[in-house]
Amino acid sequence: MLSFIRKRSLSSLISLIGLLVLVFFLSRLTGDPAALFLPVEASAEMKQQFRELHGLNDPLLVQFGHYVGSVMTGDLGESLRKARPALDVVLEAFIWTLWLAAITMSLVAVAAIVVGSLAAFRSGGFFDRFSSMISLIGASVPDFWLAIVAIVVFSIQLAWLPTSGTGSVLHWILPIAVLFVRPFGIIVQVVRGSMIGALSSAYVKTARAKGVKAGPIIFVHALRNAMLPVITVMGDQAASLLNGAVIVETIFGFPGVGKLMIDSILQRDFNVVLAAILVTAIAIFIMNVLIDLAYALLDPRIRH
């Protein structure tokens, strides 16, 4: 297991380096970094000064060396806008996103597993068709549209919930509800499909021949086997919650890493953008390791 994680870490490290190289060269090769990093109205002198200060007149490879060197020592530069270390700014925002994603994903997981399993048990029945329709619609709705419709209905018309910001529990309801919909729709379908497969498997036949009751057959025999593909999709969805978070955080004025990244891009605070990339990529890597661990926990065949 340990060697597995080590191997996994190594290959992810390579991926991470690849990503950094890509972003670095893209930012350096597509025009003048000074223009990217400085405000639009900056004068020619300011740009020249900026270049010298950041060694932008050095050859590209030397610049890359410097960049890698500072990344290795954990120095991701200063946020130009906030005059603080970029990493601090990102981590601060990241905590918010992490909470948002963790709460949403937990709710999605529980709801999707229960609904999907029940739908599979009586596949073709009313509940199955109803939940299939709901989950399909859920998987088809653009989150930004849902967010603004929710604001119109719950914040403006009914005035039950605040439109944006943080502060109280009420502020969390709409973002979580909006982020919930798509992953729920997708995962319900996967759970249902996987459970139908598991319920028609040979070992379930054996359990029935043993006289095992319906409850344990669904939740003990079938579910644990059916969870394997579900976990993979859950991982993908958890990662793409960060996608959704960009939109939802922007619309709801939620101070997470997605909003930070969009703001930083629009404000040309490039060090923050790079730091945010690094932090989210590491977070996704950790999550992937956790998923692999969950896999091994669930299925003894993977452990060996």
């Binding site: 040979a202 070992y203 054996t206 086997n225 669930l298």
Partner: peptide, 13 residues
């Protein structure tokens, strides 16, 4: 009852 293919008829997990 016992079956033809015991591998698939035993729960793998």
């Amino acid at each position: 009852m016992i079956f033809q293919d015991p591998l698939s008829h035993l729960n793998p997990v």
